[in-house]
Amino acid sequence: MKRIPIATWLISTLSVGFVLLIWWILSANHVLNELFMPSPQKVWDALTSMWSNGYKGTSLGTHLLDSLTRLALAFGIALLTAIPLGLLSGKIRWIRAILYPFVEFYRPLPPLAYYTLLVLWFGIDNTSKVILLFLASFAPLYIAVVAGVGRIPEDRILGATSLGANKAQLFLYVILPSILPELFIGLRTSIGIMYTTLVAAEMVAAISGIGWVVLDASKFLRSDIVIAGIIVMGVIAVAIDVGLRLLEKRIVPWYGKE
């Protein structure tokens, strides 16, 4: 990953600041309806209030921890399943032939289309929520790994084999390093899709989680809390993505360089 120039960071910061300034000016001049688009000050007050007093009797930290726990469990299961199955599918056609139709069938489906089935099968507790998030993250990660294996040049495999590499060495020193760029793309895409599914996962019989906070506040037209919750979710998502970018830069230093 190439280093982002300081000028780019500066432009991005100024862009965000410009939008916030326009928002503040429109709110100060009562151009925006406070019910649907509260001022930045009201959103900040809602955020600090949730941080100090919580929401519906539960602290903001607990809501975040519950959501992140669900995300972490689902993502961990996806890592343990999507990567091995993707590697096998990339090398063995009949395994890919078995799995691909199911992955391609459910991948474009809206989460709510099959969440009701998950609730019927696994109950309304965290199990159905974790499974929904797992399914959302599995498909992009699996497809990225399969694509990465498929792009490995055949002469690279033959060259390593001719030099005496066994199957374990071939995997550790040729296949795995070769798919790392696609793997990190899949990881970032997977986490992004999980985040878009979080609110759906916390819609049914949930009493905690940042997604639930946003959904519950919307029922009472608390747009200040809704926007504050969305901002918190966005900041966490950006932090996770930046962390993955830094990890990618450390593990795959050659990616993006000629």
Rank of each mutant, 00 (worst) to 15 (best):
I4N: 01
P5Y: 03
I6R: 13
I6V: 14
L10C: 07
L21K: 04
L21T: 15
I22T: 05
W24K: 11
I25C: 10
L26Y: 13
S27G: 10
L32F: 09
E34G: 09
L35R: 12
S39K: 05
P40L: 00
L47N: 01
T48K: 13
S49D: 15
Y55G: 12
Y55F: 15
K56M: 14
K56G: 02
T58R: 14
S59A: 13
S59Y: 10
L60P: 09
L60G: 11
G61H: 07
T62R: 06
T62Y: 10
H63M: 08
H63G: 11
L64D: 04
D66Y: 13
T69D: 05
R70Q: 04
R70C: 03
A72D: 00
L73H: 03
L73E: 07
L73D: 03
L73I: 15
G76F: 01
A78T: 11
A78I: 07
L79M: 02
L79K: 01
A82S: 07
G86F: 02
L87P: 02
L88I: 15
L88K: 02
K91E: 11
I95V: 15
R96H: 12
I98H: 02
I98S: 09
L99I: 15
V103G: 06
E104T: 09
P108V: 05
Y114E: 05
Y115M: 11
L118M: 13
L120I: 14
G123H: 10
G123P: 11
N126E: 06
T127L: 15
I131K: 06
L133N: 09
F134W: 15
F134D: 10
L135F: 11
A136Q: 12
V145D: 03
V146Y: 03
G148K: 01
G148M: 00
G150A: 08
G150E: 08
D155K: 06
R156K: 13
R156C: 09
I157G: 03
A160N: 07
A160E: 06
T161V: 14
L163S: 02
A165R: 05
N166T: 05
N166Q: 01
K167C: 00
Q169E: 14
Q169D: 13
Y173F: 14
Y173W: 13
L176M: 06
I179W: 01
E182R: 10
G186P: 05
R188H: 04
M194I: 09
L198W: 02
E202R: 00
A205N: 14
I207F: 12
I207D: 15
G209Q: 02
G209N: 05
G209R: 04
I210E: 02
G211D: 03
W212P: 09
L215E: 11
D216T: 12
A217L: 07
S223Y: 09
S223W: 06
V226D: 05
V226R: 04
I227V: 14
I227E: 04
I231G: 00
M233T: 04
M233W: 00
G234N: 08
I236S: 01
I236M: 01
A239Y: 00
V242D: 00
G243L: 12
G243P: 11
W254Y: 14
E258S: 12
